[in-house]
Nucleic acid binder design. Structure first.
Length: 860
DNA sequence: ATATTGAGGCTTTTT
DNA sequence: GCCTCAATAT
């Protein structure tokens, strides 16, 4: 994440699992706290200021993670707390893992002894399971993902007779999620908002949804926090026990916290109150101020009643985590909470993150010490200057000035091209150049604003045979086959899990269609029993046609058998049995489509991953929260990802294509969020630039195909916001002569009129020609793309996996053999003369001998 | 109960 | 243009 740890490795060999182990070791290692010696003064202050609230404003590349981990080490070594008394929260599992790893390096052992280091959600979930009965759940509750949520909501909408065309379930899911992000229980949703969906029924359905979740013994992601807050509010003694336990609280990426997370932290960070006493000033009354994101720092515009935020502020003041009774207010100092973040890297506002949280930290935690980390150890001078100058255009920020002692390095380049295809071509060439120059491709990334931009690059890289990996597609457990398999296991584990049962009742096809499921639903509702029990009851009657009745009976019997078996066999074995006996594996084996093999691999991987858990229960508890282990490093490859997923990463060479108005900044964000949106986009640009260590290269195209139609675009306003001194305008090497004159004018980039709208230009024609390319049916969403590379070969192991989609262009065994006659969209017919992995050398009848990648030809 | 065709709809996505 | 979902035909 930042520079490699240079901390002395003071290992103590033997591993003691007890609580005291790490602390003792840390203390022993700390006669003179050497771990402090590599820190600069600000970092050191951030580490050593243990008492009272601390906000560390850590700009990009300033050693944020290092401060956090060192601080933990310091707390332990000073004997201020034992490992289980430190609450340390991150947003991602990846960040949590990273911290554990670094801590381990620092303290010389794996950090099993830090039980409360994890993501908001996993810690929230853990607390919730411990006290599940207090929030009307059982400790083995299921964590639903978005898909399950939407399906459940769809049912509720139907029950309410709401046209789900006009009021899509997905939209309601988003709405409910946003309410939960803001810490609002159904009865707390402002009535105006509650009524805004489904002819006034939105709020009611939210309430019903929550009730249904309890019946299903399930919680969604939002509940992991919201129900936790409710738990604390309704059970002060429980809250107190956690307040007592956590002597120190550390929060990573504080700028990304939403209101619910904020409330949760506030509750825990309050000094424990005596029994019977309410918390003091838990929440300042005006937390939801009109000046939410982006309006900050500027005039708050309180009179502007049109703004939804303003409306919200008046309608829904933040709920007090604990109701404060009059006369019981009492000042008690907030606990030792340390939040680390960077307001300039807040890019998840649209997901409920509240930049305001970080901006008003000092107000929320009186007496807070604010420490700025401004020494950047990552980027060269020009890059840093460009990024800083750009972000300075934002108004709602706390303000930091990043500086570096590094050399100026190369200027940031800006390159225009005729269209997006040429852009990909130009970048492809530069990549090859870097490769020839001996750069490690692992240190090269292409960061796009929107994932649809990736396709063009993939096409290009495949043609060039340049190894790349896509980072960030659907997660492992979001894949259909994984979710199906999990649904089987969930149904076994928890017979009341209707959503799981419904998912697999007719997968594979058993002749149990909509009609059957509908009748099961009716039956279940009437008798108030789970679907599965309804199924058991219904097969005893003759309400179903013999055929459906037979297969439903078989299914019920199978589940009974599997449940019995689950008592005596290991969970991995059980999974294999279930996948086999249910016919699920067979279904994919029979499937002739290209990705079937990849899916089977994924299923195997799933079973393999189960081994790490004690039992089925433990596995299911973790799967939806922490199933994102990193893929193995694999071979050298360029990384292709969105700007969002690049946060926290760094690369020597960073390519930033698509800097055009409408795309970046995104028109939609501008429309929906106005200036706040623009500022968030600008932060995104800042994040992009600051990922680069040595070279940052920006691109824009004059023509881009969006949703299938070509449109002419104008260069991003962000380009004009870059400091001329640190930027170099270059010509596209992609060919077709975009002779960017480079003149700095009112806008340096607006000399586009000269290109007019000619639809007969080479670029356009080339784009046309390419449109129908992708022969061999190679196209499709992430999943299919992934599988088109991985299909059919287990030799190299599943290519992806673990969490992130990692498509690769090399490393598979070709399905072609020598002398096969093949067809290529562009080059026509030919035959294979050489095979090298997935790269084929083909002698084309017309075009001569060419090297191509196998996915671009088909056997004829 | 399932295969096929047509009408909208589209960003970003840590959990 | 490409994918998903829902209405149609088999």
């Amino acid at each position: 994440m930042t520079e490699p740890s240079k901390l002395p490795h003071r290992g103590v060999p033997e591993h003691q699992p007890q609580a005291g182990g790490i602390a003792a070791r840390a203390r022993a290692a700390a006669g003179a706290p050497q771990y402090l010696s590599g820190l600069n003064p600000e970092q050191r202050e951030a580490v050593e200021t243990l008492d009272g609230p601390v906000l560390v404003l850590a700009g990009a590349g300033t050693g944020k993670t290092r401060v956090l981990t060192t601080r933990i080490a310091h707390i332990l070594s000073q004997g201020r707390a034992r490992p289980h008394e430190i609450l340390s929260v991150t947003f991602t599992n990846k960040a949590a893992r990273e911290m554990k790893l670094r801590l381990g390096q620092m303290l010389g052992q794996a950090v099993e002894g830090m039980p409360w280091l994890g993501t908001f959600h996993s810690i929230g979930g853990r607390i919730l399971r411990t006290h599940a009965e207090l929030v009307q759940l059982k400790s083995n509750f299921t964590v639903l993902d978005v898909d399950d949520q939407v399906r459940l909501l769809k049912q509720l909408l139907q029950a309410e007779n709401i046209d789900d065309k006009r009021w899509p379930a997905r939209m309601l899911a988003g709405l409910i999620d946003s309410w939960k992000n803001r810490g609002l229980l159904p009865q707390q949703v402002p009535s105006g908002e509650a009524a805004s969906f489904g002819n006034g029924k939105g709020g009611k359905i939210y309430a019903t949804y929550q009730e249904r979740l309890k019946i299903l013994n399930a919680a969604d992601f939002g509940d992991l926090l919201l129900e936790n807050i409710r738990l604390f509010r309704e059970n002060p003694d429980v809250l107190r026990s956690y307040q007592n336990r956590f002597k120190f609280i550390l929060v990573d990426e504080y700028q990304d916290t939403n209101v619910a997370q904020y409330l949760w932290l506030r509750l825990l960070s309050q000094a424990p109150s005596r029994p019977g006493r309410a918390l003091s000033e838990v929440i300042p009354g005006d937390v939801t101020s009109p000046r939410l994101r982006g309006e900050v720092g500027a005039q708050s515009a309180p009179g502007e009643g049109e703004s939804p935020q303003t409306e919200l502020a008046e309608a829904a003041p933040h709920p007090d985590p604990l109701p404060v009774k009059d006369g019981e207010r009492e000042k008690s100092p907030p606990k030792n909470i340390c939040c680390v973040g960077d307001d300039d890297q807040s890019i998840y506002g649209w997901r409920g993150a509240e930049v305001d949280n970080i901006l008003r930290f000092e107000h929320d935690f009186p007496g807070a010490k604010v420490i700025r980390l401004e020494r950047n150890y990552r980027s060269t001078g020009h890059i840093l200057a460009a990024a800083s100058h750009l972000i300075a255009h934002n108004e709602g920020r706390l303000g930091k000035t990043l500086r570096t002692e590094d050399v100026d390095g190369e200027k940031v380049t800006v390159t225009g091209s005729w269209d997006s295809e040429e852009e990909a071509r130009a970048i492809g060439e530069e990549l090859e150049e870097l490769q020839r120059a001996g750069e490690n491709l692992n240190d090269v990334a292409i960061l796009v604003r929107a994932s649809f931009q990736m396709r063009e690059f993939e096409d290009r890289f495949v043609t060039l045979g340049l190894p790349y990996r896509v980072i960030g597609g659907p997660r492992f457990y979001e894949r259909a086959e994984i979710r199906d398999a999990l649904a089987y296991l969930r149904t076994i584990n928890s017979p009341a899990d209707d959503l799981a049962f419904e998912r697999i009742v007719n997968v594979p096809k058993r002749g149990l269609g909509d009609a059957t499921v509908q009748m099961l639903h009716d039956h279940a509702r009437k008798k108030r029993i789970p679907l599965f029990e309804a199924a058991r009851a219904v097969v005893e009657t003759d309400e179903l046609k013999p055929k459906a009745r037979g297969s439903l009976r078989d299914l019920v019997m199978q589940f009974d058998r599997w449940r019995a078996q689950s008592e005596v066999t290991s969970h991995t074995e059980l999974a294999e049995i279930v996948l086999d006996e249910s016919g699920y594996t067979e279904m994919w084996q029979k499937d002739r489509s290209a990705d079937a093999a990849g899916r089977l691999d994924n299923l195997k991987e799933l079973v393999r991953s189960m081994e790490e858990f004690e039992n089925l229960q433990g596995f299911l508890e973790h799967i939806s929260l922490v199933m994102d282990r990193d893929g193995e490093a694999g071979e050298e490859a360029v990384s292709l990802m969105t700007l969002h997923s690049a946060k926290g990463l760094e690369f020597d060479n960073v390519f930033l294509p698509g800097w055009e108005e409408g795309l970046f900044p995104s028109q939609r964000t501008l429309d929906e969020q106005g200036r706040a949106g623009l500022e968030e986009e600008r932060r995104l640009a800042h994040v992009g630039l600051t990922r680069a260590r040595r070279r940052a290269k920006i691109y824009f195209a004059t023509n881009r195909r969006i949703h299938g139609t070509w449109s002419t675009t104008i260069p991003s306003r962000f380009l004009d916001e870059l400091p001329a001194h640190n930027v170099e305008i270059t010509e596209s090497k992609g060919g077709s002569g975009w002779g960017g004159s480079g003149g700095y004018g009112a806008s340096r980039f607006d000399n586009l009129e000269s290109f007019g709208s000619s639809y007969s230009t080479p670029g356009w024609q080339r784009a046309q020609a390419n449109r129908n390319r992708g022969g061999g049916g190679r196209s499709g969403g992430f999943e299919e793309r992934q599988s088109s590379f991985s299909s059919g070969h287990g030799k190299h192991g599943p290519l992806v996996i673990e969490g992130e989609l990692v498509a690769k262009s090399t490393g598979t065994v070709s399905e072609f053999s020598l002398d096969d006659r093949v067809f290529h969209q562009k080059f026509g017919y030919g035959h294979v003369v050489k095979i090298d992995g997935n790269k084929l050398t083909i002698a084309f009848e017309k075009a001569g001998e060419k090297k191509v990648v196998d996915s671009f030809v088909e056997r004829v």
